[in-house]
């Protein structure tokens, strides 16, 4: 398709005019001439406020989630100390004691205890009855109890040997 010279000239003029408009009608100049935006309706205001609230709520929720995650990480870290059997004093039965006892609890409660052999022995039954430990009997029990009694004897001596105890 071909255009007549007049049509070409008209098209060129329109394009030039367009370019002129684009070049001169920059936003800073346009702004003062732009018609004032109509005042927001009450509904629009309410919507904007609700959106702001929702955004603030989302931010708050995100902060709370982050805080909760951080708290959980702290709790997980403190509850799971990187312990090995070396946390307990050397001795025959240490590895077995470490494996069995730390299935549930860290070594702190063992290391801070000091009991007579009979009391350590009773503790095995108590752990089973009250804390759901698998029953410990026979040579395994002897190994565990002997290690505990040897490694963690009473540290607070009675003022005098009790005359009613052997």
């Amino acid at each position: 398709m071909s255009l007549l010279p007049l049509e070409k000239a008209a098209l060129g003029a329109i394009c030039a005019l367009g370019l002129l408009v684009l070049a001169t009608d920059i936003p800073s100049r346009r702004a003062p001439h732009a018609p004032a935006a109509p005042p927001p309706t009450p509904m629009a205001l309410a919507t904007a406020a609700a959106e702001a609230r929702a955004a603030a709520g989302r931010e708050e929720a995100a902060r709370a989630t982050a805080a909760a995650r951080a708290e959980e990480a702290r709790l997980a870290a403190v509850q799971n100390p990187p312990e090995t059997a070396e946390a307990l004093p050397p001795g025959h039965g240490r590895e077995e004691v470490f494996a069995r006892c730390t299935a549930c609890h860290s070594t702190a409660i063992i290391r801070r205890s000091g009991l007579q052999p009979a009391a350590w022995d009773e503790l095995m039954d108590w752990m089973t009855e009250k804390h759901g430990m698998p029953p410990l009997e026979g040579p395994d029990r002897a190994l565990v109890v002997d290690y505990l009694a040897r490694s963690f004897p009473p540290r607070r001596a009675p003022r005098a040997a009790n005359p009613f105890l052997n």
């Binding site: 403190v78 100390p81 702190a108």
Partner: peptide, 21 residues
Amino acid sequence: AGAAPLLRMDGKAPLLLLGER
């Protein structure tokens, strides 16, 4: 029996840590 280490955890004062788990 056995001096306790201190609890080191944000949000808690340095309490006497009697056991971790």
